[in-house]
Nucleic acid binder design. Sequence first.
DNA 1: GTCTATACGCGGATAGAC
DNA 2: GTCTATCCGCGTATAGAC
Lengths: 203, 203
Amino acid sequence: MSPKKMDEKAILDAAAEEFAELGFSGARVDAIAKRAGINKAMLYYRIGDKEELYRRVVLRGQAGIQSAMMNAVAASTTATETMVSILTGIAENAAENRLMPSIILRELAGNAKTLPEEGRDGIRKFMDAVRLLVTTGVEEGTFRNIDPTALQFIVTGAVFMLSLTKEMRQELYPDNPGPVTAEQISEALNDIISHGILREGAE
Amino acid sequence: MSPKKMDEKAILDAAAEEFAELGFSGARVDAIAKRAGINKAMLYYRIGDKEELYRRVVLRGQAGIQSAMMNAVAASTTATETMVSILTGIAENAAENRLMPSIILRELAGNAKTLPEEGRDGIRKFMDAVRLLVTTGVEEGTFRNIDPTALQFIVTGAVFMLSLTKEMRQELYPDNPGPVTAEQISEALNDIISHGILREGAE
DNA sequence: GTCTATACGCGGATAGAC
DNA sequence: GTCTATCCGCGTATAGAC
């Protein structure tokens, strides 16, 4: 990889942190430059203005999530397996860096008004994949005929929120914070999502 | 209700909209004043500075959610009933105004760093209620022994995200947007949460 | 209590030296 | 390619007239 690309990566990493912590309007270009170890003029020279910076961060992050998901799908055979792969994939991704969850939640909060145009394609691809997954599972006979949209947001919503509240929960309930590691999160969620909360026969 | 309080309500409503749409740093005090139909100086005279404005909005919103939830719990007898009441209560609340979901998601995205101190109490109360609910359900014999934290964030995460993505989904999939009304949302979620996605006997 | 006019600092962006 | 110095508009906040 060329040194130029290396530099870009460092800048985008810094920008991702800043945007995740403070949002687009809260983020400071000077702060991003400082985090990246360069000065502001250099940042403008290399990448462009604040909007372009944000665009790059979002698209790079989406690409990462998407490829992680595609790998999970490719490595699985049955619908059940795929479902678990996607869940654990997202949980691992979200736990190891909470940058994208933060940015995505902020986007949703603002009706995705600041989402770059190309970003919509990524969302559509994800939704299509989940729809296909559910159809397959129903045809296989392993899935109930559930709403795929509901499933998608149960998974993403819960994973993102559990990841982002990790510290808060550890503060509020030091000796019983609930699931914190990626493994704990995906296990706890998979238990509920797969089997529901009701005991067999109960209603 | 005194006219003074009436005015305050109009201001806080306007502020809630602005904060929800744009976040704390994105929100403009001038815009809030304009939305409320007064000028900026008047706003400072009546409420205070931007931070105080935000504090009031968050605490008022939390109180609303909390009382809605407490009512749902009080009106139910079994754990299953309570669980459904809470789910539909949150879904209705979120669907009729998405202001608090937006504000809450932004808070989570920023690690609740801008959350007013008193706001933490509200969170703790909610979490305690869910824990009690699960314990009761397990004792009743109707609930499996699930992780209460996971359940809480499955419910809130999914409801918030489904509510906030309503328009986006209608744009992306005009003839199959998934659940959009409060009723559709709570039904689709309840189906999965109660019974899981797997058919009986399938694994 | 209400409003206009203004102070003032902060932050995005760039000019221009090297 | 790199950096310092600076511009300039925007947004919070308030002074002060009425």
